[in-house]
Amino acid sequence: MTLAIQGLTKAYGGLHVVNDVRFEVPSGALVGVIGPNGAGKSTLFSLITGFLAADAGDVSFEGRSLGRASPMERARAGMVRTFQVPREFSHLTVRENLLAAAPGQSGERLIDTFFRPGRVKAEEAAIAREAAETIDFLRLAKVADVPAGRLSGGQKKLVELGRALMTGARMILLDEPFAGVNPVLIEELSVRIRELNGRGIGFLIIEHDLAALNKLVSTLHVMDRGVLIASGAPAEVLGNPRVRDAYLGGAAA
């Protein structure tokens, strides 16, 4: 197994937003987390990626405990997240967004920028090729040199996925990748995710939109009011009365 979530807990005041959640994401798996609004999915995501500090529990990735690591360390360990509301670098072009994500660039050190321009240039050429391939793969070629702030919501999500790919992540955590995205692009995005998964990249996807997700993932975890209420194959989980209750009850309220 790659990613193990071990009893993560977060409370605000007396309210347990995430309560002793534990599950595992095997390497190269495609796993989804669903739940009604306010179930604690996004908080769980922030706990896994270190953007929030957990009150209890641990996260381990590829056998390494990361429960106390910073978001940067967790990303460098190979586990990279996207955001529910896209956080593109709005004034940088799509291409520059991707280039910025490439790890270990000596050109990001001032001393090398001024004194080793040759090396910086060679590295830059290599990552530029990689970025161009990623742009083609994500079908972003038409907007490659447009500032990312001008793209549609769906395209911005593709840019975030592209950045995550550029980091060389082995596990990508997508926070509501389909929210606010038009149906054509949802299909497109699903195809890309499946293809990447075929190359061995693991995905953990949080989604509110059930229809898009249950076709994509092999395992679903369902959260309600901070706790995990069901886990298993999508068809089986969606047939679970507790899940139906949580979802329909939540929708009706």
């Binding site: 990626t49 953007f51 910073s70 978001p71 940067m72 360390e73 967790r74 990303a75 460098r76 990279v80 997240r81 996207t82 955001f83 956080r87 593109e88 670098f89 709005s90 004034h91 940088l92 520059e96 967004n97 280039l99 910025a100 994500a101 790890p103 660039q105 050109g107 990001e108 050190r109 001032l110 920028t113 001024f114 910086v120 830059e124 702030g149 975030e160 950045r163 995550a164 980091t167």
Partner: peptide, 27 residues
């Protein structure tokens, strides 16, 4: 020189969205 370098690209990325920079593993 700075603006055209990867360093320059990174500081502009920080200006645009610091959290996203952290999410990519850079401080």
């Amino acid at each position: 020189r700075i603006v055209r370098s990867p360093f320059g690209r990174m500081i502009e990325a920080i200006r645009d969205n610091e959290e996203a920079v952290k999410a990519l593993g850079k401080d």
